[in-house]
Design a protein around this nucleic acid. Structure first.
Lengths: 213, 213
DNA sequence: TCGATAAGAAACGCAACGTATCTAAGGAGC
DNA sequence: GCTCCTTAGATACGTTGCGTTTCTTATCGA
């Protein structure tokens, strides 16, 4: 239909569908994403899509995966707080409304479809350029003496993403600069300092909960 | 229809609808919640519901609001970590799959409907029995000398709810005991200790980011 | 008792669902 | 180069729920 000259197959067809899905997501969002519109846009038909992805959610996730993640440019300001604010701002900018709306929609379906839940969990909780950037920022702060030597568990490295996503989704809007500053100053910086205080010497097993006496 | 003898009005009718909506949410979840089913269950008709709530999302939020919050029983174990684990577990148990699925669904609509976003934000970020419980737990820990005197900003008091909701929603499942322990040990306890370290003396303005030298 | 208000029933057109059926295109194998 | 076999792509299906409109009649307030 789109190109009557040839009938696409395999990867070519697949990427055409995923690109069309991404374009639809961008234009109308997840809530209004329809398989029919994606099929029309990709110049194919509904059954072709249903043969590959069993649901809107998995199609959307596949389209998202196809998009290049564009790792955050490693900003090195020479100051822990400034580095964190820059990272948070970058993440907040990139995780725009459309992506968050899509995540919310997919989450809603994850509760009934364990397969969707698995894909989403892997995507949201796995290692990523952002969790890597957290490690780099902390390592530089330790080198400068701003922080005692500290090991950052993966759960802690995920916190910036989690906080920002939570904020954007509970507010249904992009984060303000004030919100970013609060997340950094009230939560993440104290968290890092508290973690570091648990590791009085590098390499030593963490003293998890220093007793009062 | 449900009761042919009389035609309900006002609060009586309204609560019947909200109770029916809650029952439907419990049975089929938000994704499969339909106005028609709620109307049928409440013994009324669609227009009666549409006259009051413009969308599924606002109906669901109203039904949720009607449910008694059942504040978490104040557990006082005499130990900061134990108190936190108990609180996290209570919150995790109460914020069950259905509620989280509903929140995800409503979030998806919040991006297109600012009114829904406002209601949801107020409900999720406002003061609550849980944020109050955090304050109590911290205060007791300070009294025992487990923590230096510390002022807990509202954003920090919200963190347990945010962490638990985030975890349940990204995983599409209830939290395991291990996950609760990690949230407490890796994130929230360090966060509280880090906050406390910023307040060397009670009443004194916070030394936000202690310089290395 | 009367008039205004709103409950409740029914039906509307619409949009998208997910599936089934059919055709013909374009690889793979001989 | 011909044949077979997979599968793209078109089309149409019945179903469901949407949100609205229309109409009736019960109930409340004056």
């Amino acid at each position: 239909m789109a190109d009557p000259r040839s009938r696409r197959r395999g990867a070519e067809l697949e990427t055409a569908i995923l690109d069309a899905a991404w374009a639809e997501l961008t234009e109308v969002g997840y809530a209004r994403l329809t398989i029919e519109a994606v099929a029309k846009r990709a110049g194919t038909s509904k059954p072709v899509i249903y043969r590959r992805w069993p649901s809107r959610a998995e199609l959307a996730l596949a389209a998202w995966n196809r998009q290049a993640p564009a790792p955050p440019g490693p900003t090195d300001t020479g100051d822990l707080r400034e580095d964190l604010v820059a990272l948070f701002a970058t993440v907040a900018r990139r995780a725009d409304s459309m992506v968050n709306e899509m995540i919310a929609g997919v989450m809603g379906e994850a509760f009934r479809h364990p397969e969707v839940a698995g894909i989403l969990r892997d995507r949201l909780t796995g290692r990523s350029p952002v969790t890597g950037a957290v490690g780099d920022i902390v390592a530089r702060a330790v080198d400068r003496g701003e922080l005692p030597p500290v090991e950052v568990p993966h759960r802690v490295a995920r916190v910036p993403l989690d906080l920002i996503r939570n904020e954007a989704m509970t507010c249904g809007a992009p984060l303000s600069d004030d919100a970013i500053a609060e997340l950094v100053d009230d939560i993440y910086l104290p968290l890092l300092h508290g973690l570091a205080a648990q590791h009085p010497q590098p390499g030593e097993p963490a003293a998890r909960h220093p007793a009062p006496g």
